[in-house]
């Protein structure tokens, strides 16, 4: 489905990003595994792709740093000759009640989860405009739609990503660059492992399908959005949340 497409996936050493990288590679994409801290885990993803006969490299970059991001995009184009799909997946959490949330915790999350999407999008646009084609897939969150107590920073960023997706979709449609967002619900990853049992039970009670999602459930929707199957879809946010928010 993605034969010879070059896909850059941010935050791809773990969780949903890792799954998207593996899925895209299994469908023929050449994958750039971006990471900021976990080099060993990023290498594992690359090794796994290569072992399965695919092509992948890893690039370290902090998505909230413009110089890092520009260098990463340059390196990608140098390594693979084009850049067809960007998946803005890198994200962090610094949960706390609003009353207890520090300014630094707010800023850190906005920097990575929202500004990072802006910077990466801006950096790949030049290449995609030249190619007259491209796909940008932003990983938002269902809490960006519904709100969530204890995540003022994260929710603000994820809601911001949905607005950014729509705006970017409008600006770049004329150049055949399609921009969509995925809003995962409660997906079993390292990030959700940090939640307490009580929090997990409360969330399960809100999910009509009554189970956690898997990273591959999100990766499959990302694959659809990156593929030719989604040629007439742009500016949308697709919830992958087991019906949690309707």
């Amino acid at each position: 489905m993605l034969k010879d497409q070059v896909a850059l996936i941010t935050g791809a050493s773990r969780g949903i990003g890792r799954e998207i990288a593996l899925t895209f590679a299994s469908k023929g994409a050449k994958v750039v595994v971006n990471y900021s801290g976990s080099e060993a885990k990023a290498q594992e993803v690359v090794d796994q792709i290569v072992a399965n006969g695919g092509e992948a490299i890893k690039i370290k970059a902090n998505v909230s740093n413009e110089a890092d991001v520009k260098a990463m995009v340059k390196e990608t184009v140098k390594a693979f000759g084009s850049l067809d799909v960007l998946v803005n997946n890198a994200g962090i959490t610094r949960d706390n009640l609003l009353m207890r949330m520090s300014e630094a915790d707010f800023d850190d999350v906005i920097d990575i989860n929202l500004k990072g999407v802006f910077l990466c999008t801006k950096a790949v646009t030049r290449q995609m405009m030249k190619q007259r084609s491209g796909r940008i897939i932003n990983v938002s969150s269902v809490v960006g739609v519904s709100g969530n107590a204890g995540q003022a920073n994260y929710v603000s960023a994820k809601a911001g990503v949905i607005g950014l997706t729509k705006t970017t979709a409008k600006e770049l449609a004329a150049r055949n660059i399609l921009v969509n967002a995925i809003a995962p619900g409660f997906i079993a990853t390292d990030m959700t492992d940090e939640l307490t049992e009580e929090q997990k039970e409360q969330m399960l009670a809100l999910i009509p399908l009554n189970k956690l999602g898997k990273a591959e459930d999100v990766a499959n929707v990302a694959l659809f959005l990156a593929s030719e199957q989604a040629n007439y879809v742009t500016g949308q946010t697709i919830q992958v949340d087991g019906g949690m928010v309707m």
């Binding site: 030049r126 405009m129 030249k130 600006e171 004329a174 150049r175």
Partner: peptide
């Protein structure tokens, strides 16, 4: 030219 054309031209 529209604004996107100008951006592209500059590139």
């Amino acid at each position: 030219a529209d604004s996107l054309d100008v951006v592209e031209l500059v590139m």
